[in-house]
């Protein structure tokens, strides 16, 4: 479903991704780990289409289409979802209104009638319950005044509502206590249906105790330097990235 070929990407003229290759099949969960500045978040942004991230070489094929040619919203409608590491606060736009617009944009893509307010509310209530967000979060401004953990749960809530085919989780575990981590992991696991694929970007093996990956990749200096199964993550947890013998000195701090 996703094939990344020799991807090179720059941010403000600094090359971050330097020939990244990755193939993901339907239903697979791929964890991407790596030291700070390796390009993990950049990968998520490039896939979702964030402006300012210039692809200088390589391509990405998503369900037989050239992903990088699509607008941000088009990628989302085709099934790419990025759970942000730092979700933005948008006061004045209610979470409810935002998600209803968003869900209906997806439905339109699939030639389905838009949901009525009541139908949407029913779905939203269910999604909120799954990530243990109180219902009044729907009425509040998007992420407005949410704690770090609430923002992360809100991202997973959106993922549940939008039913994407490729979920990219960008450090969805960072800043979470163990209970919140479990809530986020349960939310993700509930969406594993054998068809939906996941890229789980994380620093720590801890999240992978709850979301068991099929593959683990180590991203360093803009490339995948090592791939393996879940045991690779455990090794890193024990020994750090040093055992890979990587030269991490020239990593830009982005």
């Amino acid at each position: 479903m996703l094939k990344i070929n020799d991807l090179h990407a720059n941010v403000e003229n600094i090359t971050i991704l330097k020939g990244l290759n990755l193939e993901i099949k339907p239903g697979e969960v791929h964890a991407i780990m790596g030291p700070n500045g390796a390009g993990k978040s950049t990968l998520g942004y490039v896939l979702s289409g964030r402006e300012g991230y210039d692809v200088s070489a390589g391509n990405v094929i998503f369900n037989d289409e050239m992903l990088l040619d699509m607008d941000i919203e088009e990628r989302a409608k085709k099934g790419v979802f990025l759970a942000f590491q730092y979700p933005v606060e948008i006061p004045g736009v209610s979470n409810m209104e935002f998600m209803k617009e968003s869900v209906n944009a997806m439905r339109k893509q699939h030639s389905l009638e838009p949901l009525t307010a009541a139908e949407f509310l029913k779905k939203a209530k269910h999604a909120c319950a799954q990530v243990q967000l109180p219902l009044d979060f729907l009425k509040r401004g998007v992420n407005e005044g949410f704690s770090g953990g609430e923002k992360k749960r809100n991202e997973i809530m959106q993922m549940i509502l939008l039913e994407p085919s490729l979920c990219i989780l960008d450090e969805s575990d960072s800043g979470l206590d163990i209970d919140a981590l479990q809530v986020v992991a349960n939310g993700v696991n509930s969406q594993r249906d054998g068809k939906r694929s996941f890229i789980v970007i994380t620093h720590y093996q801890r999240l992978l105790d709850f979301i068991e990956p099929d593959y683990v990749h180590i991203l360093a200096n803009g490339k995948i330097v090592k791939s393996g199964d879940a045991t690779l993550a455990k090794e890193i947890e024990k020994q750090g990235y040093a055992f890979l013998g990587l030269d991490t000195s020239e990593e830009p701090n982005i």
Partner: peptide, 25 residues
């Protein structure tokens, strides 16, 4: 904020209306 809304499938024009209206909401 515009990127965030668009990354959830909301068209740019629609997202701009939401953000502007949000400002006065």
């Amino acid at each position: 904020a515009l990127y965030y809304l668009r990354s959830r499938g909301i068209a740019r024009a629609e997202a701009l209306v939401m953000l502007n209206f949000g400002f006065i909401q």
